[in-house]
Design a protein around this nucleic acid. Structure first.
Lengths: 362, 362
DNA sequence: TTGAAAGCGTTACCAT
DNA sequence: ATGGTAACGCTTTCAA
């Protein structure tokens, strides 16, 4: 071991090493690894041989420094307990990897405030940032935009900052669910919200209560479940312990809806949907299992992720592009957790969905 | 906009800009942002003011290039459907972020083979790689080690490559479950494996069948569930349709165990644990909900993640450190999905765990 | 098509 | 304690 400075015996081969071995210039090596570059067929072959021999791979970090594009996309995610997000993360990662991007994970720590997270995001020169966390203040989004980093909100929007977003049909879903429950003959409706100031929960609620109000129904009872399993369980307990217990609950997402289902059946001995109808939102994970068989407004994963990938790439290509709010259509998937109205169900693929004869358009 | 070349109006401030404004050298700026550097209190203050004024943050990419440490840790994850992994990912990310590392996500695509993934991992100069995917061949681990990158296997081991790992007590868990089921008076046992050649499934099975053999019991029936919800459901159907239907099934993880529970109750009308006992492994997610109330050998998330974080950091500090296989102790959490033996249950915290009077040591 | 050379934004090593 | 300067490994002009 006569190496004077290497901390590891394994010194990575660099483009210069390859150039020396191939008998070409270092620039030629760079060209050999640049898709559209002008290089002679034979030169490329020589470089490739040498590279193989040395186990050379272009250093992505160095490349990022010169190209000023990191090909890294930051993703701030939390609440991975909610099954929707891991699925999103996996699909996003695959989609972006196919386009040569990688996801750098930022996990907001409730203990620390958002600022250090912002600093880290900025430090890493991410090409874009995807916010898939309801928790994170929209302030972060605004600051990144201000710093010139394209930001995409996934499954949420922001009314303060002017930031692009991909969401499901939160408003329409809420309306449809109201109509569905009323058509099912329910008399005492309730809503369990997620986090109060999250756009997703607000929109779903607005659709729900909006439709009810427009059609002369009493406003629903209301509790807050904070998108959390335990908090949603507690909300359910409060609701179900009332003397005027609701006969139908719309829960702002499936994750909380499964909690409500558990409490209703196992703690209150209620039969679903005989004693209580339950409708969720997302149509993911355990909600589909027979034990829950949840009627739920679907947020179609792949269309949403595809839209997100396309938008992110577009924003990177053209940072000046105008903000867009893409809403991906879903449908109300009917299963066994809520009483089924006499009319309006049509089978679609392997699922049953509900389509009111004449949907009231907002 | 007279800027001739900027693609974005927002050009990031560099250390040179800050130096100019603060009236110091660029080296001084670097020192101001380097924790242990020797710099006068007053100089640092001047630099900090200037930095604040310009919105300056050291460029992590450039830093990585000179320090030859990216402070990025690659994590290859898949099967995020299994609730255990999202939890792991979130905890790992938090733990590493606290130590100044970030996770770069690599999602193996079943369609492509592992080689491009390796190339990408290498290109990114990750400081270490955590493999938290049962799918990925251990070949990847070996190649990374060969390239001088510290590799840590999480929730799996490899017998081919000489790679460090953090796992739960797969072997002991399997043995304990065998003992538990026999003590519960079950006569016809079955095992549902994950992926055949995954160390995790193999070890759990080896513990299970090993104990049975040592104590003169017939070998269990066996099916393969591939760690997949649908495949596990199918395995359960095959098992439960037999004329000599098992009276207890040990399923290699909770994710599959919930599938088995669904099939047993909803398709076969079996009552659990009266007609069938079920034991899983992991003690995560839906398994804890009343609907499943799964008896399961716990893999304690935080101890495992803490161990992983510590080991990764250690490996980065000292790449020559010997391989270590850390086994994090767990215990058999007793709930309602399996008949409870007359003796051996002790309450521990808010859970009931099973401790045979005199555990047979391997 | 090719090679030389100038960055990219840092850190690290020198002298001072 | 400080400033000058040489890397780090690459892409990208610019001439040839």
């Amino acid at each position: 071991m006569s190496e004077p400075r290497g901390r590891s015996t394994q010194r990575h081969a660099t483009a210069t090493d390859v150039a020396r071995l191939a008998g070409v210039s270092q620039s030629a090596v760079s060209r050999a690894f640049t898709p559209g570059a002008s290089i002679a067929r034979e030169t490329r072959a020589r470089v490739e041989d040498a590279a193989r021999a040395l186990g050379y791979r272009p250093n992505a970090i160095a490349r990022s420094l010169t190209t000023r594009r990191s090909r890294i996309i930051g993703v701030a995610a939390a609440y991975l307990q909610n099954h929707f997000y891991p699925d999103v993360l996996e699909a996003l990662s695959k989609g972006l990897q196919a386009r040569g991007y990688h996801l750098l994970l930022f996990t907001p720590d409730a203990a620390r405030d958002a600022d250090p997270l912002l600093q880290e995001v900025l430090a890493w020169q991410v090409d874009a940032l995807i916010l898939a966390s309801t928790t994170l203040s929209s302030a972060l989004a605004g600051q990144c935009r201000a710093a010139g980093i394209p930001v995409l909100l996934f499954n949420r929007t922001s009314r303060h900052a002017d930031v692009s977003s991909v969401t499901g049909e939160n408003l329409r879903g809420g309306r449809l669910i109201a109509e569905f429950l009323v058509a099912g003959g329910h008399k005492r409706l309730a809503f369990i919200a997620g986090i109060e100031n999250s756009s997703t929960s607000r929109d779903r609620e607005a659709g729900f209560t909006g439709w009810l109000a427009e059609h002369g129904h009493a406003p629903p009872l209301r509790e807050v479940g904070l998108y959390d399993f335990e908090a949603a369980s507690a909300a359910a307990r409060r609701l179900l312990a009332r003397s005027d217990r609701p006969d139908a609950i719309f829960v702002a997402n499936d994750h909380m809806a499964t909690a409500v289902s558990e409490v209703a059946r196992h703690e209150f001995g209620l039969r679903i949907p005989r004693d209580l109808s339950l409708v969720g939102f997302d149509d993911t994970g355990p909600a589909r299992w027979p034990s829950f068989s949840l009627t739920s407004f679907a947020q179609p994963l792949h269309p949403m992720v595809d839209a997100a990938v396309a938008m992110v790439c577009e924003m990177i290509e053209d940072p000046a592009a105008p903000t867009r709010h893409q809403v991906v259509p879903g449908e109300l998937v009917v299963r066994g957790s809520a009483r089924i109205p006499p009319e309006g169900c049509v089978s679609r693929g392997d699922a049953l969905v509900w389509r009111p004869v004449q949907e009231t358009v907002v």
